[in-house]
């Protein structure tokens, strides 16, 4: 039986998650399983990508100035896809920030500690959430308007071809755990409220928040997945896998930043700078 405060934490986190993330697993599965009247446009080569760029411009890039948009077409496909990735990342980081503020106790933390938790947590959370938009064949993009095939992403030139494959491999293992949005809400909160990020000042305060989330997560999994007693320890292992995934991703982005003519969004620069 769950204590009332734990139950309310589970409910609060689920509500905040549904409120702040425009995409969630339930919605993504509707698109990915074809149970929608407007199926996503499939991007599987250069032609379909160009078509999608015209059709889904706003969903792919938001309100990028029209001047930038026209010069965008002159850039190579890899650079354009890298830009779409960045746009989606910035959007998710913004959503994650709002979600973090809804975690009880987070907003009362020292502002520098809040920054540190986001700096180290957002990419781990982002890749956990990204798995909801993936199946073995590809990735849902542009708010469900598009679907980029895994093969197309693998066919890009190096180093861009190395960008998404590790995320697919993680996603396939993670999706096998069959979490739903109410589980994921607590998992994402647990990623963000992590007491061992470098440079935190009030570790004990963060550990208290973390403890209540982990406790709620354990009880939530027991009640939502009663036939899978090992789910909780398996999920804790995923936290370590995500850390590794982000370390490798950060290295790849630094490499792209150094060797390619691809500018990095200032928010993402802040996150990557002196990360690991």
């Amino acid at each position: 039986s769950q204590k009332p405060d734990t139950k309310s934490l589970v409910r609060q986190m689920h509500e905040a998650y549904l409120k702040h993330f425009h995409m969630n697993k339930a919605k993504a599965r509707v698109f990915l399983t074809g149970k929608t009247s407007t199926p996503p446009f499939v991007i599987h080569d250069m032609d379909t990508l160009q078509h999608a760029e015209r059709k889904l411009h706003t969903q792919l890039l938001g309100n990028v100035a029209s001047g930038d948009a026209s010069s965008l077409q002159e850039r190579e496909v890899e650079a354009r896809l890298f830009l779409f990735c960045q746009y989606a990342s910035v959007e998710t980081v913004t959503e994650l920030t709002e979600f973090a503020k809804a975690v009880p106790g987070f907003a009362a933390l020292d502002l520098n500690d809040q920054v540190t938790l986001l700096k180290y947590g957002v990419y781990e959370a982002l890749f956990a959430l990204l798995a909801s938009c993936m199946n073995k064949d590809g990735l849902l993009v542009a708010r469900g308007g598009g679907f980029i095939t895994r093969e197309f992403l693998k066919s890009l030139r190096k180093p861009f071809s190395d960008m998404m494959e590790p995320k697919f491999q993680f996603a396939m293992r993670f999706n096998a755990l069959e979490l739903d949005d109410s589980d994921l809400a607590l998992f994402v909160a647990a990623i963000i409220c992590c007491g061992d990020r470098p440079g935190l000042s009030d570790v004990s305060h963060i550990e208290r928040i973390q403890e209540s989330i982990i406790h709620a997560l354990r009880l939530q999994l027991l009640s939502n997945h009663p036939d899978n007693a090992l789910l909780f320890p398996k999920l804790l292992q995923k936290l370590a896998d995500l850390r590794q995934l982000v370390t490798e991703h950060a290295e790849l982005v630094q490499e792209i930043n150094k060797t390619e003519d691809a500018s990095l969004h200032p928010l993402l620069q802040e996150i990557y700078r002196d990360m690991y």
């Binding site: 920030t97 520098n112 969004h265």
Partner: peptide, 20 residues
């Protein structure tokens, strides 16, 4: 603090737009 200007801003103001 200067190193994480945008994160600070996002934490302090809700729904501030961050354009590419």
């Amino acid at each position: 603090k200067e190193k994480h200007k945008i994160l600070h801003r996002l934490l302090q103001n809700s729904s501030s737009p961050v354009d590419l």
